[in-house]
Design a protein around this nucleic acid. Structure first.
Lengths: 304, 304
DNA sequence: TCGTGTGAACTATTTCACAGCA
DNA sequence: TGCTGTGAAATAGTTCACACGA
């Protein structure tokens, strides 16, 4: 593998920035809501507000798709819904399989937004024989032995992994071998996939940790300097609407802004520890002496 | 606020970039795994592989935390686990409440990684009286009437919303009013919160749509002159994919790289359509005339 | 007159590449 | 000798601000 350092001619894709692609679903949702209310047109300002972004960004995003608006007026809701749907590939049907029908898998299977927008749950797969045949969300669970057959029979190219961490990689490998080229991973593991396969991950634990980081900062700031922000006792600021005004003002800064959900995707972890491990138990000697750390104790952070 | 464009002394936070913060949990997980295997030290190369990033990025990330490595050797696993945990604020206990104990809420409550790493499920809350008292994951569900009391009694500052979309904003408002300053939202809605409150969202539908976008690109590249795309009687613009160009045959490129999970957070949608709606059924007249689109019909994209 | 579309400026993030320490 | 730590260069993404068309 190695070879060049994966320079890659850079973000191919017709040129729509990833950041923009990630926001299209947001716009689409807001537009769909407007459409349902039969609103004929929206301005970038209004739509941006509904989608939770600022209008300049929205206009820039749309500019990558083409010129679908009308100066002095705004955007035609229906037309834009169509254009974005098409751009996202939602005008076609995407059969998906969900592997791992535990609590989470069942929740995903029942998730309404799943069926809408072109996604169709082609099958629910679980390794537990006892689950086989049991209907979840109206769909009978199938045993994982069938995985390959299901994938090819249905032309599935998107797989959702909701298995325990340990089973994720093996399942992923099988999915990929069977032809899946896009994976949504809910298991707390870094998946290694061949080039050309996309992986996106959703990780509760990571999200919480990011929140904790900011939460900790807030707490520290209280006493430090600016008091304004977190108003004592309970109750958070009141200003809710305040921010309104649009653009400027509010903003707020400490907004998480944009944080990668990431996706080791494609490139994927190359060597990924792979070998090694052989070490096995051994080294009960515990870890390093008290390195620079004045504290040898070390925390806890119990593993999952 | 208004004043300068919210310059804010800049990202307060000691200066650790958001992108880095978002990766710390990843490193932590990899390190914890190594720690369990009693591996004493790791090089940036190894750890990076395990975390699914490249070593340069990892070293740069760590450099924001301080100089915790040893040249020529690597990083002391235990020590690094501690440092990152501390940085993320995981050395303290974070009580969290999960609101909305449906399929998803139950899955979250049962999620192991939840309890670990300093997070503790302080309470499960649901609006359905029938749920009250029923234990989920060993914790009895409490009625939402108790929400405020639970928040303050337990000093909860992090809330998880797993309710249906419609209930999300009201629940969010109550959580915030009760003192919660960090919210993890699983409901497919843009939450509006006051300044100082962080919101992160996890949205299955959005992730799938992003995958679909890339999947579509892959399909189109295969045959270059897209054929499979949506014929659709309507369809305004022509060229659709076409442009693709394909650049590097090797495809690859379309790696999602880093895409924001985002978080409208803070600023949040101000006006957000709010009112309106009253329109109700009315306007069956359908939307605007056939604007530039030669197609008045418009697609489907059924709403959720 | 109003709001889109967009070049340009600015900010954030990633990658390079190499000096320097254990 | 090997690997960290980090300026500097290269990219990516956001925001500004304003010309232009309906």
């Amino acid at each position: 593998m190695a070879t060049g350092r994966t320079h890659r001619p850079a973000t191919r894709s017709r040129g729509i920035p990833e950041a923009t692609v990630a926001r299209l679903p947001l716009y689409l949702r807001a537009l769909t809501a407007l459409s349902e209310r039969s609103v004929p047109t929206v301005s970038s300002e209004e739509l941006a507000a509904a989608a939770g972004v600022n209008s300049a960004k929205l206009r820039k995003d749309f500019s990558y798709l083409g010129s679908y608006g009308t100066r002095g007026v705004g955007y035609d809701v229906e037309y834009l819904v169509y254009q974005i749907s098409r751009e996202l590939g939602l005008t076609q049907d995407w059969p998906v399989v969900i592997v791992g029908i535990g609590n989470l898998g069942a929740a995903l299977a029942n998730y309404g937004g799943f069926a809408s927008r072109g996604f169709r749950v082609a099958a629910l797969i679980d390794a537990d024989p006892a689950m086989a045949g049991k209907p979840v969300a109206g769909i009978p669970v199938q045993h994982s032995d069938e995985l390959e057959k299901i994938i090819s029979d249905n032309g599935v190219s998107i797989g959702v992994i909701a298995t325990p961490a340990g089973a994720a990689q093996p399942v992923c490998d099988r999915l990929v071998a069977a032809g899946v080229t896009s994976i949504l991973n809910f298991a707390p593991t870094v998946l290694s996939v061949p080039d050309g396969v996309d992986v996106r991950k959703v990780d509760l634990s990571i999200e919480l940790q990011i929140l904790a980081f900011h939460e900790q900062r807030k707490a520290g700031e209280e006493s430090e300097a600016d008091a304004a922000l977190p108003p004592v006792g309970a109750h958070g600021a009141g200003s809710a609407a305040a921010a309104a005004e649009a653009t400027g003002s509010g903003v707020s800064a400490q907004a998480p802004a944009a944080v990668p959900t990431d996706a080791g995707a494609t490139t994927a972890a190359p060597a990924a520890a792979g070998a090694g491990s052989g070490t096995g138990a051994a080294a009960a000697a515990s870890a390093g002496a008290g390195r620079k750390g004045p504290d040898g104790d070390v925390p806890a952070v119990m593993p999952a």
